[in-house]
Amino acid sequence: MTDTTTRTAQAKPVGRRALLKLTGAGAAALTAGSLFNISNAEARTMETQTMTTEWDKTFPKSPNVDHQKIRFKNRYGITLAGDLYLPKNHADKRLAALAVGGPFGAVKEQSSGLYAQTMAERGFAALAFDASYTGESGGEPRNIASPDINTEDFSAAVDFLGLHPSVDRERIGIIGICGWGGMALNAAAVDKRVKAVVASTMYDMTRVMSKGYNDSVTLEQRTQMLEQLSRQRWADAADGKSAYQSRYNELKGDEAQFLVDYHDYYMTPRGYHARAVNSGNAWTRTTPLSFMNMPLLTYIKEISPRPVLLIHGEKAHSRYFSETAFAAAGEPKELMIIPGASHVDLYDRTDVIPLDKLHSFFEQHLR
């Protein structure tokens, strides 16, 4: 049973110490001195990463789906890597298609791949892809993000799907998970080829990086962080390479529960993947810069009249992101609250993810 009404949620405040711990869902705002007290992480520097031929997903391969590893380029010339899932025995039928991205700092072998394969089992062509500069996709320096480039990554996936012989290009939707929920909404607003959009357990990465959790960062703290990030550019330019943040999701004790939840997904056999930024790797120190003054949801109303479905856990620390997006979006829209679910539950718990709802939503709106 799900609650599809929207209510104002007063999220439990996150302490300053927890706020400063960077998580796999995104960097909270950093206060003075923190950027220069973190270590470098190793970074791969190949423009185009080698694509493995092995099944190295965090979920089992479905016998009801055909799988193919593919490459395509975005508008900036970066080569992206993806996994294309097609239902078996679809013959010459043109299929409705879905592009699936996220979470922020994850790879296609994790949550997005699970969503994509599951939707292919239900009759859709589905493409899970690695964001620019991450996973098996190209771009350097490694492990850097941008709200603009990552929004473009979604549109590039739509480019690929619209040219595929098994896809009906007039029936393409997108799914964004966690931090890629905000990217998906931004992509749908600007890319009119997208006919329907779902954001699951959504983060607005521009909001959390510029304002911190629950918008708790003061102007003074924001100014301090921008001062540090600006000066880090000089350090990187002098070194001729990017410096990296501390490794993600390594617990030291006394973390907030949502940080423990991230660790339990990204750092255990449940969801660990060596290529994921969140699985003990790191973003560049200057990654937050491009998120600081580019609000992703500025034009969310322009998705209308195409439908928006927001899915979030009742107990998720991030629930307020979906509630804000729901309030701002135009019609038709729906906010689906999953009783008892946490943020990370919607990454991979197929008994919690409302798969029937995803199916019916896209079946209705990609006709």
Rank of each mutant, 00 (worst) to 15 (best):
T2L: 13
T5Q: 14
T5C: 10
R7N: 12
A9T: 15
G26F: 04
A27V: 08
G33V: 06
S34R: 13
L35K: 06
F36Y: 15
N37V: 13
S39G: 14
A43I: 07
E47D: 15
T48L: 12
T53S: 14
E54F: 09
E54A: 14
D56M: 01
D56I: 02
D56W: 00
T58W: 03
F72A: 09
R75A: 14
Y76G: 12
G77C: 05
T79I: 06
V100L: 00
V100S: 00
E109T: 02
Q110W: 06
M119C: 02
A120E: 05
A120L: 10
E121A: 01
A125K: 04
F129T: 08
D130S: 09
G135E: 01
E136R: 10
G138H: 08
G138D: 08
E140N: 12
R142I: 05
S146E: 03
D148E: 12
D148N: 06
T151V: 07
E152Y: 11
F154K: 00
A156C: 08
V158A: 12
V158I: 11
F160W: 06
L163F: 14
P165Y: 04
E170N: 14
G173L: 07
A187N: 06
D191G: 01
T201W: 09
M202N: 06
D204I: 07
M205H: 07
V208H: 02
V208C: 04
S210A: 15
K211H: 15
N214M: 05
V217L: 13
V217E: 11
V217R: 14
T218E: 03
E220F: 06
E220A: 13
Q224P: 01
Q228S: 14
A235V: 12
A235L: 13
D239W: 03
S242M: 06
K252N: 15
D254G: 10
E255Q: 08
Y266Q: 09
H273S: 09
H273E: 03
G280E: 09
G280H: 11
A282F: 04
R285I: 13
P288E: 07
M292R: 08
M294K: 15
L296V: 00
L296Q: 12
L297E: 07
T298F: 05
E302Y: 15
I303W: 06
A316G: 11
H317C: 10
F321E: 11
F321P: 08
T324L: 13
A325F: 00
G330Y: 08
P332Y: 01
P332L: 00
K333A: 05
L335V: 03
M336P: 04
I337C: 09
I338K: 05
I338V: 15
I338W: 02
H343A: 04
L346R: 08
D348F: 09
V352G: 01
I353A: 05
L355C: 00
K357T: 12
